[in-house]
Amino acid sequence: MAKKPVTFMLNGSERAAFAEEGLNLLEFLRRAVGDLSPKYGCGQGTCGACTVIIDGETHLSCLTMAEAVQGRKVETASGLANGKVHPLQEAFMEHFAAQCGYCTPGMLMSAKVLLDHNPSPSRAEVIEAISGNLCRCTGYEPIIDAILATANTRRLA
C-alpha cells in the first residue's frame, strides 16, 4: 500500500511520519507517531475516547484521515502538561474525575476547547461540551465539577 509522508505540529513540535493510505489519525498517532494518549474506544465516532484538538477545535481522531493533518496543529492530552500539570489535570485529580482513566484524555481535550472558547461556562455548557465523551466509571459528576472548578480558579487568578 502506498505510504504518504505527513508533516504536522504535535503539541508544539514539528513531527513527520508515514501514513498508509486510508489510515485514520488515531492509528497514525498511536502507531506511527507513538503518542498513546488518544484512546481507541469504538472506532466509529460514538465514544469520544479518541478526541484530539486540530487547529483549536475538537475532532474524533478515529474518523479523521491521517493525511488531513498535513501542515496543521494537533494537540493531544500528552501535550497538556507543560513543565507542570495543566490546571485541568490538576482539577481532575482534585475532584477524583478519573477512575479507570480510559475516557480521561478525550475528556481533557473537550474540556480544554470549551474553556479556550468560553472561560466561564455554565454547568449546562460543560455538559454539552462533554456530551460526546462516554464515561463508564465516574457518573460524570466529578468530571463536570472539575471542569467548572478549573474555570472558577482561572477567573479568580
Binding site: 469504538c42 460514538t46 449546562a124 460524570y140 463536570i144
Partner: peptide
C-alpha cells in the same frame, strides 16, 4: 450493536 443504540445516561443525567 454499538454506542448509538446501547443506551446509557449521559453527563448531567445522574
Amino acid at each position: 450493536v454499538d454506542f448509538n443504540h446501547y443506551l446509557m445516561p449521559g453527563p448531567g443525567d445522574l
